[in-house]
Amino acid sequence: MTKQELAKFDGREGRKAYVAVSGKIYDVTASALWENGDHQGLHAAGGDLTEELKTAPHVRSVVERFPVVGTLDEEPPPKKKKWGLF
């Protein structure tokens, strides 16, 4: 799943709430702590939380308890611009 696809799973308006951590995508929809895709006003569903979890008050294993529903695709490297007349 790409980051753009993941963003659609924001937990709002009845949509599922997914978060990515270290390349895995977890379904946090069933958690009362992720109501409407918001986790205590600090984190939002639909994104990659890998960096954010480094400063979270709990360990990554808390997230790892949720079902894995996919993997996060790596972003392709930016295309190099070709310079020339044609």
Rank of each mutant, 00 (worst) to 15 (best):
G41A: 03
E64M: 12
G47P: 08
T2D: 07
E35G: 01
S22N: 15
E35S: 08
H58T: 10
V63L: 10
V62A: 14
S31L: 01
A17E: 10
P76N: 09
K79P: 10
S31C: 01
K81Q: 15
T55Y: 11
P57A: 04
V19Q: 13
V69A: 13
D48V: 03
G41F: 03
G70P: 10
D10F: 00
A44M: 09
G46C: 12
R60P: 09
D38S: 06
V62D: 15
S22C: 15
L6Y: 08
K79V: 13
Y26L: 07
L6D: 06
V28D: 07
Q40A: 07
G70K: 12
G11W: 09
K54W: 12
L49Q: 15
S31K: 02
L6A: 08
L33M: 10
T29G: 02
V63T: 13
P57Q: 08
E75H: 08
L42C: 01
L42E: 00
M1P: 05
H43A: 03
P57Y: 04
F9G: 02
T29P: 00
T2P: 05
A32P: 11
G14Y: 13
G23T: 04
V59Y: 07
L33F: 04
P77K: 10
D10S: 00
K16F: 13
G14L: 15
S61P: 00
L53A: 02
Q4D: 15
Q40E: 07
G23L: 08
D48I: 04
W34I: 12
G47Y: 00
P67S: 05
V68H: 06
K8C: 09
V28H: 08
K80G: 12
G37N: 05
G11M: 08
T2E: 05
